[in-house]
């Protein structure tokens, strides 16, 4: 771990026990005092976060504040310089990472699909590797296509032949294939047009609720944060600045940074397009 000039202060961010649907189970995802530095600079200061089963947590914050780093830490793509990551009570380490990854779906912008495989083969890749029978794979893919409302024809095209919305739906299908308990989404709808995004948001929230998934999502869209988030974490420069519902952040901003961040939204139709949300 690189030498630090100042010891960063730790931020703790554990929701009220009352808000958790099944507190007895313990958190689905627990980050305990994790931190990450690149080249002697903290991109994530020591942070403790717990995400409970069946809840959706949204990470918002300015570009480069460490949202993706945090998400990637949960799936073991970034190793924390200190602290521990625990998934469903199991500590994330070299021995458990493969197994735990299969219990977490991870979706990035544009789906991260493999260009050499059709949509169907992208979705079924892991199941086939794990030895599922073909009829079971086909049935599961059909089920997921229904769930994500993907046109059946898109399944047998290659990613380069699909629209952005179709690729995103396939990315979500792939993440859901093994029915993981948790789903991590990094700006999943950033590249979509408003209509497709609107539909996909509806679909996703319906899916999350119907399947009882534990979800952590990164977005830059405040409306999206409010739409999904049981809880919203606002990150600034590598630490959690404020946590709560979107309403908490809007109506009781912890500081000037939070106030400016949550009000920096433009809505069409308001005078000169300059109108600000909740001022």
């Amino acid at each position: 771990m690189p030498a630090m000039t100042t010891q960063p202060r730790s931020t703790r961010c554990i929701p009220d026990r009352a808000a958790a649907p099944s507190p007895a189970d313990g958190p689905m995802i627990a980050l305990d005092d994790v931190a990450k530095a690149y080249g002697g600079r903290w991109v994530l200061e020591p942070t403790t976060i717990a995400v409970f089963r069946g809840t959706t947590t949204v990470l918002i914050g300015p570009s480069g504040c460490g949202k993706s780093t945090l998400l990637r830490m949960i799936v073991g793509l970034v190793a924390p310089d200190r602290g521990t990551v625990t998934i469903a009570g199991r500590r994330l380490d070299a021995g458990s990472v493969s197994d735990l990854r299969r219990r977490i779906g991870y979706v990035i912008q544009d789906g991260g699909l493999f260009p050499h495989l059709t949509g169907r083969d992208n979705v079924g890749l892991l199941a086939r590797h794990l030895g599922w029978e073909p009829p079971r794979i086909t049935a599961r893919i059909t089920e997921l296509a229904d769930l994500t409302r993907l046109p059946a024809a898109a399944l047998d095209r290659f990613p380069s032949q699909l629209s952005g919305g179709q690729r995103q739906r396939l990315g979500i299908m792939r993440a859901l294939m093994l029915d993981p308990a948790a789903l991590l989404l990094d700006e999943p709808m950033a590249a979509l047009d408003p209509l497709v995004r609107y539909d996909l948001q509806e679909d996703l929230r319906r899916i999350f609720r119907a399947t009882g998934k534990t979800v952590v999502m990164v977005t830059h869209d405040m409306g999206e944060a409010g739409f999904f988030g049981d809880e919203v974490l606002l990150l600034g420069a590598g630490r959690v600045v404020q946590r709560g519902t979107l309403d908490d952040l809007i109506h009781a901003p912890a500081d000037e940074f939070v106030r400016r961040f949550v009000s920096a939204q433009r809505f069409p139709g308001l005078s000169g397009g300059e109108g600000r949300n909740a001022s």
Binding site: V75, L77, S98, D99, R101, R102, Y106, I108, G112, L113, F114, P115, H116, L125, L126, H129, R174
Partner: peptide, 23 residues
């Protein structure tokens, strides 16, 4: 893409044979 394969939970051999070599 490399990360997508990793995060999916494919082991090193499967990543090589099913993703990296085809690509």
């Amino acid at each position: 893409l490399r990360e997508s394969a990793e995060v999916l939970g494919l082991d090193g051999r499967a990543r090589l044979l099913r993703v990296e070599l085809p690509l």
